[in-house]
């Protein structure tokens, strides 16, 4: 079984990933919506920006985060006026993994938004539903499998986040040392093989549980709604 310290690492990882994914979900959904439905000047630029974390080396992403959110950064200085700093904090780790998970979440949701047959939306309008009601009653249930897929993909990506996190907020036990960082740290120590094995097993189990959970949720929704 895991030691107390190892449980703390798992708990911290879950907290960082959960906060990252839930916090970034509304933004990812909004961007997915705009990319799926909108055609405007700068569409290509937005599309490229969204995918940047997917194609850049994570270390470069972490360095960019340092530039923006660090003590001298534009956002960092603004946050400091409010007495907030994400540097060397678990919130910084959440920010890093949120940004790294963002493109995957956008992609999953965008595909399902684009797949919605808009003729159902116009049918609902003629039946007396306002745009807002159509969104919540027709569109959102239809894209829900995509949202769930996005959440699971994002969560898995976030649990595995390494490069940007260690570059941005360092490897501080109890604060920013998530599962991959702890495994990396244990690998540097002689005689910590057991810790490495246990944490690796936990990582595998967490990923599998997330996948199974999304599968069950998707099926249950499908059954309830007659799809």
């Amino acid at each position: 079984m895991l030691t107390v310290e190892e449980w703390d690492i798992v708990a911290l990882s879950m907290k960082v990933s959960a906060v990252a994914i839930l916090g970034v979900l509304p933004f990812a959904f909004a961007v997915a919506w705009v990319l799926a439905r909108g055609r405007f000047v700068g569409w290509i630029v937005l599309d490229a920006l969204v995918h940047l974390p997917l194609v850049l080396p994570p270390v470069v992403m972490g360095w960019l985060l340092l530039l923006v959110f660090g003590g001298q950064g534009v956002v960092g200085r603004w946050l400091q006026e409010w007495g907030i700093s994400v540097m060397f904090r678990w919130t910084g780790a959440a920010l890093a993994s949120a940004i790294m998970a963002f493109p995957l979440m956008v992609r999953a949701m965008r595909l399902s938004i684009a797949a919605v047959d808009r003729r159902f939306e116009s049918a609902a309008r003629t039946l007396g539903a306002s745009r807002l009601r159509v969104f919540f009653g027709i569109t959102l249930p239809m894209v829900m499998p995509g949202i769930l897929a996005g959440l699971v993909l994002g969560f898995a990506r976030s649990l595995g986040e390494f490069g940007a996190t260690i570059t941005f907020v360092s490897n501080i036990p109890g604060e920013t040392q998530t599962l991959p960082l702890a495994i990396y740290a244990a690998l540097q120590l002689p005689g910590a093989e057991d810790t490495v094995t246990r944490l690796a097993v936990v990582s595998v189990v967490l990923s599998l549980v997330a996948l199974a959970l999304s599968e069950i949720l998707a099926r249950r929704m499908g059954n309830a709604d007659g799809i």
Binding site: R119, F120, A123, A124, M142, D225, I227
Partner: peptide, 13 residues
């Protein structure tokens, strides 16, 4: 509006 393809909502009974 009655459509050619009926457009019943597939996620509802």
């Amino acid at each position: 509006y009655v459509f050619q393809d009926h457009r019943l909502f597939p996620h509802m009974g």
